[in-house]
Design a protein around this nucleic acid. Structure first.
Lengths: 183, 183
DNA sequence: TCCGACATGTAACTGGTTACATGATTTG
DNA sequence: CAAATCATGTAACCAGTTACATGTCGGA
């Protein structure tokens, strides 16, 4: 796929920054839908520079520490644009270890199965609350600025996902418990 | 993680089968939450055999075609059980290329952004309908058999996910179109 | 007799994680 | 002055995909 490439181009299209800054962007801004470690970012920056999609200039931080501030090139902007407009079905269903576990858990005693679900519920409910708290920090809803609207939309998506998972888990619990009663 | 190992153990715990059968199980039964190509399955079966978690006996199909029918061992059953009961937060948010695209699409003209969303909506709506059709094939709801209930629960999860995505996309479209009007 | 499904494997490569490795700067 | 953070890189490994490779069986 080479998606990391476009994640980096997308971020640099918003603002010039260093590899370290990019790393932090992945940890915060893109956290909800993409991730990359610095060990993947630095070699990719090297490659993108070679492809002339980005360029860098060295800045001195303090007295001797050199940092490379990367900037997207016109060619890079074009490449990003093309990717954004690409019409391709890459809609692979993501792997889900919990579903796999739940699926095979029919060999466990019902109380263990319920425990499994309760744990998962607790987790997603917590994450849901965290996202909702983040949402409440928007002063205008919907936001007026374009890039803020993007933030808002993906956050909405996150909340909706966590919410859906909580609802599903409650339903799973009900159905599993209910079957037990029938015995 | 080594999740493939448990996917295979889980399937063999239900029923002894060949590598080829397992491949088909991944394509049908587990499709909604896990996948593996035969090129990954065969080496893993070799490894699991070495670890004595599974064993095989050769059956002759037709006149000379040998097939290896794999069976889970007691040791394998124990290993599966342990994994099912494992308490670990591996709740990594899955990568989502569409969200990444949407996130950076603020540089596109609004009509292109709407197109992007419409395409995605069409896809998820189609998948939702497909899942719903699969759901309608259950004669009893909720199913009485344990393993059928598992099928039912993950299918419900799939429908709920596709439904949530459709709702979210409609909301995204509304917010993006609405911003346009404000201009 | 041909074609699609059955059946099993390996090799090369890609994307991503963990660990190794180093050093500067800022803040308490 | 110590600890956290800033800053950049490489190496080894793991999971997974694509392509290569071979051969059988059953039905139209």
């Amino acid at each position: 796929m080479g998606t990391l490439k476009y994640a980096i181009l997308g971020l640099l299209n918003r603002k010039s920054m260093t590899g370290y800054d990019l790393k932090k962007e992945f940890e915060t801004t893109l956290f909800e839908f993409w991730s990359a470690k610095h060990s993947q970012i630095y070699p990719e920056l090297k490659e993108l520079t070679k492809e002339k999609l980005i360029s860098f200039k060295i800045e001195i931080s303090g007295t001797i520490l050199e940092k490379k501030v990367y900037t997207i090139t016109d060619s890079g902007k074009k490449e990003l644009q093309n990717w954004l407009l690409e019409k391709e079905d890459k809609n692979i269903i993501p792997k889900d270890e919990f579903k796999l576990r739940l699926f095979f858990s029919d060999v466990l005693p019902v109380e263990k199965r319920i425990e499994l679900i309760d744990e998962q519920y607790y987790f997603h409910n917590k994450r849901k609350e965290y996202f909702e708290q983040k949402l409440s920090k928007f002063s205008n809803i919907p936001p007026k600025m374009d890039s803020e609207l993007s933030d808002y939309l993906v956050l909405l998506g996150g909340i909706k996902r966590e919410n859906m998972l909580c609802e599903w888990l409650i339903e799973c619990k009900k159905l599993i418990a209910n079957k037990e009663e029938q015995k």
